[in-house]
């Protein structure tokens, strides 16, 4: 669950654990208090209730303390999100096209594939387009997702950290084969990627060059 596959995996998981941990403490507190009250003040044990109207101090306390905690949660979420928006200048640009119900990836030299191949540790910026309805580009292992629209230029970026194969799913409902709209991203060593890129580009009659992109 918590193997770091991209630069976002750890930070997102950390926010999750932070909120989940705090929540669990409060939740257990609520349950324990409730069960204790129900037993301790059951009608058998405590037939005579005590009248308590309100307590301003308590009300203020349980307004302010959650507020402070909530703002901290908001802050961590925002910081993590800002990283997701800070696309490095040297990112490799991939045009991603979604249609009912498949993904297609276009490399800077025009090479088109239906599976994504990326060198490990390289920043990748995916430019998302749809030819029909709404889709969403989702790589669960990388903790990233973005909706894909027909006339809106959304983009998303990641830097992979671990070699392997990861699923790409469509997360926005798009009709009949929505659940079949899977593809994969292969994270490879730089050498392997270069070899693959060269060979595949040559086969398609294209220049196997990324330089224009890398320099940009």
């Amino acid at each position: 669950m918590f193997t770091s596959a991209s630069n976002f995996t750890n930070s997102v998981d950390a926010v999750f654990l932070y909120i989940a941990g705090l929540s669990l403490i409060v939740l257990i507190g609520i349950i324990v208090a409730m069960v204790y009250f129900v037993i301790r003040y059951s009608r058998k044990r405590n037939p005579v209730p005590t009248h308590i109207e309100e307590n301003l101090t308590l009300e203020i306390l349980w307004t302010v303390i959650p507020l402070v905690l909530f703002i901290s949660m908001f802050y961590f979420g925002w910081v993590g999100y800002k990283d997701m928006r800070a696309i490095p200048d040297d990112a490799m640009q991939i045009n991603v096209t979604a249609r009912m119900w498949q993904w297609s990836f276009e490399y800077p030299n025009g090479l088109k594939t239906d599976t994504l191949y990326v060198p490990v540790g390289k920043a990748v910026r995916a430019l998302l387009h749809s030819t029909d309805v709404n889709h969403a580009f989702f790589i669960p292992a990388f903790r990233i997702k973005k909706d894909v629209y027909a006339n809106k230029n959304n983009d998303i970026w990641f830097r992979s950290e671990k070699i392997g194969k990861y699923d790409i799913a469509c997360a926005e409902y798009c009709g009949l084969q929505h659940s079949g709209m899977y593809s994969a991203v292969y994270i490879m060593k730089q050498e392997d990627f270069d070899a693959w890129y060269k060979a595949t580009s040559a086969k398609a009659g294209l220049q196997p060059t990324l330089t224009a992109q890398v320099l940009k």
């Binding site: 909120i19 989940a20 409060v26 939740l27 993590g80 999100y81 990283d83 989702f138 997702k145």
Partner: peptide, 21 residues
């Protein structure tokens, strides 16, 4: 409460990106 707490998770931006949909 559980619904509320998981709502807090969904309210956090970076986490929401992963959990949305």
């Amino acid at each position: 409460s559980i619904g509320g707490f998981t709502g807090l998770m969904l309210g956090a931006l970076s986490l929401n990106i992963h959990l949305q949909d």
